[in-house]
Design a protein around this nucleic acid. Sequence first.
DNA 1: TTGGTGTATTTTGAATGCATAATGCCCTTT
DNA 2: AAAGGGCATTATGCATTCAAAATACACCAA
Lengths: 227, 227
Amino acid sequence: MSKIQHRNLYLEVADRVRELIEHGELEPGERISEKNLCERFGVSRTPLREALKVLTTEGLVDLLPNRGARVIQLSIKQVKDTYDLMSALEGLSGELACQQISDAGIEAICALHERMLEHYRKRELAEYFAVNQQIHESILTAANNEPLMEMYNNLNQRVKRVRYSKKMTDEFWSKAVEDHEEMVAALKLRDGKRLGQILRDHLCNKLEVVSLAGVIEDEALLKQANA
Amino acid sequence: MSKIQHRNLYLEVADRVRELIEHGELEPGERISEKNLCERFGVSRTPLREALKVLTTEGLVDLLPNRGARVIQLSIKQVKDTYDLMSALEGLSGELACQQISDAGIEAICALHERMLEHYRKRELAEYFAVNQQIHESILTAANNEPLMEMYNNLNQRVKRVRYSKKMTDEFWSKAVEDHEEMVAALKLRDGKRLGQILRDHLCNKLEVVSLAGVIEDEALLKQANA
DNA sequence: TTGGTGTATTTTGAATGCATAATGCCCTTT
DNA sequence: AAAGGGCATTATGCATTCAAAATACACCAA
């Protein structure tokens, strides 16, 4: 029997707004109207404003005094900085995972890895991404470090929008798969230092940024053009 | 001329509550009475409640639905996890700092290092700590990575209480100073990989935890006895 | 006593109301 | 026509109010 959980309204609202941002229904830089969202969710301003304050602390929203809230708009530098940070966190997760993960856990990741390879061979990008993400999540979970998980997810949330819009070159893709081969090898040996190093250097964190620059600038230009 | 800044009340309140927690006026696990704090700060419940929500997302406060707020009380594992995470962040800050820091910046840190050594020789613990912290802050600043800084400060805030209460053994202390010698050497060579490695392994992050276990357990027992 | 039930009190959650700051628009002036 | 000033409108910040949940406490029964 699961515990009765009554969440507060502001948490629910925060989730919903997060979704709106993630799915692009609220665009970066867009002004968030309290009234508008209140009507949309059917709640009063109090829980909505509390939610906005939470989202501001999470770094997803920018709250200007007396001038309302906007969806955060990351500069290229901020995205790069965030990726650097996430790499470091992934590195740590690799080290910790090697110390803590069970044999079964390793096997599970190997299985995911095989599935990922299959999707790579078939050039199924969306499926590849999904499994890829599962692998990284599994390592993160195996690391068994709450604040690490929490921070990683928070950062991921911030860059999700731009992350999804990335293009994958063949060269980039094959390199990523190579990295994953090495990762699995290190994991099997429980070589934490090595896995950590690979994850820190993993191109998903580095190379991406290069192509990202394009995306962000395109969006910025587009916005200017429309304004 | 500095910009006119009018901060919202909830930010002010959040700062004040943070201080109360940091200085131990609100103890870990202690129930936070809304009414009490409202009267103390002379504000209505709205901004206070907003502040509590912010502090909850920051991980300093635990907000239970319909049952009020409490100051967060970290378990030994959580403290250990947080330290692991902070080590990784410090490591990253070292790598980045080496890439970005100016010659003048390096010299400034060397100067701080000399001052720290002086305090070490004179066994001036408080002064040593202060300068030590300045060094780490300088490196973090030199890394020039906003979200990194933000996260580090947040984590630091969470463990500040237990961090201050730590005891310093001679052996531990001398090892710490040795580490710092190596750090400065790596920094002078702008050897990011090396500085990163040293910082990740720096005992301030590792050894500390061992003695911490004692402190936290003592406090827990004390609390039980009083209850 | 001890355990449980029902009521009163306190505390929290959310909506509403009010004061103030920001925005938009029209009008004047040059 | 463009720039600036003033008024009306709107949005925000905070206080207050109302409703619901949790807590405390007294009372009763075993």
